[in-house]
Amino acid sequence: MGTLALLGFGPGGWGAALLGAAATTLLLALAGFALGLVLGGLAAAGRIAGPAPLRLLATGYTTLLRGVPDLLVIYLLYFGGSAALGGIAGWFGHAGYVGVPPFWVGAVALGLISGAYQAEVFRGAYAAVDRGQIEAARAVGMHRGLILRRVTVPLVARTALPGLGNVWQILLKDSALVSVTGLVELLRQAQVGAGSTRQPFPFYLTAGALYLAITTVSNLAFARAEARARRGLP
């Protein structure tokens, strides 16, 4: 079987499987990014405006998760998660090994990691917000919540967009690490194909090309979003 047929969509071809796995990769990254958005927003808010213990906790979180290898975090959640779930199941009288769904291990790990980076992005964007515009909002009688919703958050979001684009790129590439849990995302599917056909090179090359396509397209999407968001910004 020729290399092209091997990667094609015909009988015995792996094309459909690889594309499906690429979709899993995208979903995984999206879930991780969404979770990271929540965690990052909370951590940034904690560092900016929280009381001392919360500030310390948020600082510890961002420092630890940005300093420790992502692979190690995935191992922690993969092995530690099933141990913890097993413990909880034990309380309810269920004995034995409890597996955690790899997709959610991956999504939570990527969420934790990207949240730490997103927190830094938000913090930087908040520091860059023009205080005069906040003051103008106070001067027209807006209360705190309204200022946050109508002025601060939109301004922070705009400034944060390029940084969030970077985090998304990192996250997409990091999602390949989740393959160690056995989740059939893009890289894992390539591994499976490589193993069963004994032709690793075309499979990894194809996986690489698909990743490149995804990162390039999302780069363009972020560039467009930035151009839209920059409307009105000097």
Binding site: A139, P154, L155
Partner: peptide
């Protein structure tokens, strides 16, 4: 309420850029 009754014009304009 009081601020809403007082209009303020700043040296640096402070228009909302977004």
């Amino acid at each position: 309420r009081l601020r809403a009754r007082v209009g303020m014009v700043f040296q640096g304009f402070n228009l909302w850029s977004h």
